[in-house]
Nucleic acid binder design. Structure first.
Length: 559
RNA sequence: UGUCCGAUGGUGUAAUUGGCAACACGUCUGUUUUUGGUACAGAAGAGUCUAGGUUCGAGACCUAGUCGGACAACCA
């Protein structure tokens, strides 16, 4: 049944291309690659690309290489390399090979030499400004400069000079000799190599010239025999150049295909902007639970299963899109509902005293860990007749559809007894101090013979056997749906209330939880134990709330 | 005033390649429920950017237009 469903699911355009290529014999097998630049942490947008690249390879019996696109030493760091590998493993993908564009620096240098010798590349002494001014605009052609006609011998000699550190940074570049009047800006003599006296995270000080993206990416694909090089839409105009290099260099004919990147409502996906949030301390770090990074989402409590399911549901196409976060939230809830154990935690406590509870009696109640998963078993919770419930679960003047506690009303305490509210005690300011109830002895959970039907069930914690914990309640990082299209600085749209720390009272069993463990706090939401927790002080991150239909109704009814 | 890419319910993705638009999320109704969660049942919501054309028949093909995006870093 499951398989039938999968077979019925229509192919995305990438899968269609692959099936055609396999069918026509163009490719005997497929090889894809995931090519992150190690200049930041992976985010949910990368997850889409990862699921696509690894996903199609798995589906069609191929493999995927991990290749770090490390051609710009001034922004790239080992820390990022490590985080990327960690995130990839966490998602559950394994790569066939771990490569680096820098592995190919020697070959790339040779490739450049080939182009020079073919008269297809030249050394340009122009400044960046001069290059830009002769480049023209999308609607007007560029112009050739004097360096373009240098002899092959001179170009070769100068290129070695560049490599040997004979020229200052920025003084020379190696450019392809294509067509300064091309309708495609990327074909107007693109730069192949630039001089940079920077220490590279892998090659150290071996090189002082580094290839540009265009001169490295396609050739790296070709060297690895990548059959389908999948990237995002902004690279469409690069495709002509991608093919030009492979053609002139007579390399393996890797093909580039482009799909639309992921945009998520109320978040940003630009690595540059995310870095800014980190550097300027708007968030606690790359793994701040509000960040759309995989490390942030993991810390927040998102499961890899949920993220993969999300990537599967959003689909692959070529049109710009803005996915509603509610779909992501649906995916976490769906997975966590089945996998997370339930616990009881009271956020805003008010005391309930069971007036007919025998003095000193402690009843050990049995509580299911997850109604969606029998194998999750049970735990024991002590009950002593004095407890806390949520302040919002009691109302003095309840509206008709209020299924919770009020004077004269009955509710069930989850996994415990049905109680009847008789009275309330207020302090001098009129605030409710205690709620006095009586319990129905025959209504004990699991052996209820009372025959009483109640409309509501409340979560609670025992007044003595509970611990104070810190809860980090996270909300969306931005106030507007699409921060990147708003006027002005994106930071103007940061939600200043995206983190709200509160103290709550939790059942004792939570003391045994492990960092990263996910729970459903009954009637509240999903929470995950944060790594900053200490023995005495547990910190839970709110992943997402439960769906709250009453919250919506009460807003309308009560106002 | 250029080239390229795109346009299908609120959102996203489909439509077996030309046979009167489907699925999911979201929204709304009910049922069940010891979570106002979950599960289940159901409903509303687009006639496919516009105008022509080809065709017995067009969301799909052609032409023109409109709108949106990308392209002028020694970034990737």
């Amino acid at each position: 049944m499951e398989e039938l469903k999968k077979e019925e699911k229509s192919l995305n355009f990438i899968e269609e291309i692959i099936e055609q290529d396999l069918k026509s014999g163009k490719n005997k097998s497929i090889l894809t690659r995931f090519p992150p630049e190690p200049n930041g942490y992976l985010h949910i947008g990368h997850a889409k690309s990862i699921c696509l690249n690894f996903g199609v390879a798995q589906k069609y019996g191929g493999k995927t290489n991990l290749r770090f696109d490390d051609t710009n030493p001034s922004t790239e760091e080992v820390e990022y390399v490590e985080s990327i590998k960690t995130d990839l493993k966490w998602l559950g993908f394994s790569w066939a090979n771990e490569f680096y564009a820098s592995d190919y620096f020697d070959k790339l240098f040779e490739f450049a030499l080939i182009l020079i010798r073919k008269g297809l590349a030249y050394i340009d002494d122009s400044t960046a400004e001069e290059i830009a001014s002769l480049k023209g605009t999308p609607t007007s052609p560029g112009k050739n400069n004097v360096y373009r006609s240098r002899s092959i011998e001179e170009n070769e000699e100068l290129f070695f000079g560049m490599k040997n550190g004979e020229f200052p940074e920025g003084s020379k570049t190696l450019r392809a000799k294509i067509d300064m009047a091309s309708i495609n800006m990327h074909m107007r003599d693109p730069i192949l190599y630039r001089i940079k006296y920077a220490n590279h995270h892998r090659t150290g000080d071996k090189w002082c010239i580094y290839p540009m993206y265009d001169f490295a990416h396609g050739q790296s694909d070709a060297i690895e025999n990548i059959t389908h090089s999948i990237c995002t839409l902004e690279f469409v105009p690069h495709r002509e150049l991608y093919n030009w290099y492979i053609n002139k260099l007579e390399l393996f004919p890797s093909k580039q295909y482009e799909f639309a990147r992921l945009n998520l409502s109320y978040t940003i996906m630009s690595k540059r902007k995310l870095l800014q949030l980190v550097n300027e301390k708007h968030v606690a770090g790359w793994d701040d639970p509000r960040m759309p990074t995989l490390s942030g989402m993991r810390r927040r409590g998102y499961s890899s299963e949920a993220i993969i399911e999300f990537c599967d549901r959003i689909g692959i196409a070529k049109r710009e899109n803005l996915i509603d976060v509610s779909l992501l939230e649906f995916c976490v809830r769906e997975h966590l509902n089945k996998s997370a154990q339930r616990r009881m935690v009271v956020f805003d406590p008010v005391k309930v005293v069971i007036t007919n509870w025998p003095k000193g009696k402690i009843d050990a109640l049995t509580c299911e860990n997850n109604p969606e998963d029998e194998s999750a078993g049970f735990r024991e919770i002590p009950f002593n007749g004095e407890l806390f419930i949520e302040r919002e679960d009691f109302m003095e003047a309840p509206p008709k559809k209020f299924f919770r506690l009020a004077v004269g009303k009955q509710v069930r305490l989850k996994s415990a007894y049905i109680i009847t509210c008789n009275d309330i005690v207020k302090d001098s300011s009129g605030a409710i101090q205690e709620i006095h109830c009586t319990y129905v002895p025959e209504s004990r959970s699991g052996s209820d013979t009372s025959g009483i039907k109640v409309q509501g069930t409340l979560h609670w914690v025992n007044s003595e056997n509970s611990i104070a914990v810190q809860i980090n309640q996270y909300d969306r990082l931005f106030k507007v749906e699409n921060p990147s299209i708003e006027e002005g600085d994106f930071k103007n749209y940061i939600n200043s209330e995206s983190l709200n720390k509160v103290t709550a009272y939790a059942e004792l069993s939570l003391l045994n939880s492990e960092v990263g463990q996910r729970f459903q706090f009954l009637r509240k939401g999903y929470y995950c134990l944060d790594k900053d927790s200490e023995n005495k002080k547990l910190i839970f991150n709110r992943t997402v709330t439960l769906k709250d239909t009453w919250g919506q109704i009460s807003l309308i009814d009560i106002g």
